[in-house]
Amino acid sequence: MRVWSLHPRYLDRQGLLACWRESLLAQAVLAGRTRGYREHSQLVRFRATPEPVATIGAYLLVVAEEARERGYRFDTGRIDRPATVGQAPGGVERVPVTDGQVAHEWAHLGAKLAMRSPERLALLDPVATVEVHPLFVRVPGAVEPWERA
Rank of each mutant, 00 (worst) to 15 (best):
L60N: 04
C19V: 05
R70Q: 12
V29G: 01
R33C: 04
Y59R: 06
A54W: 06
C19R: 10
R73F: 05
G32F: 04
F46V: 06
T76L: 03
L17A: 10
D75Q: 07
T49S: 07
R45N: 10
A31G: 02
R78Y: 01
A18I: 13
R35H: 14
V44Q: 15
L24N: 08
E65K: 06
I56A: 12
R35M: 11
G36R: 13
E51C: 13
G71C: 05
G32Q: 07
V63Q: 11
S41V: 05
V53I: 11
E51W: 14
Y59N: 07
R70F: 08
E65N: 04
A67W: 03
R70C: 09
A48R: 12
R21H: 13
A58W: 02
R78A: 02
T76G: 13
V53G: 02
R33S: 04
P50C: 09
A28L: 14
L61N: 03
L25S: 13
G36I: 08
Y72F: 09
Y37Q: 10
I79P: 00
I79F: 00
R68D: 03
L30M: 12
E69N: 10
R45C: 09
E65S: 07
T49P: 11
E69D: 12
P50N: 10
V62Q: 12
E69P: 05
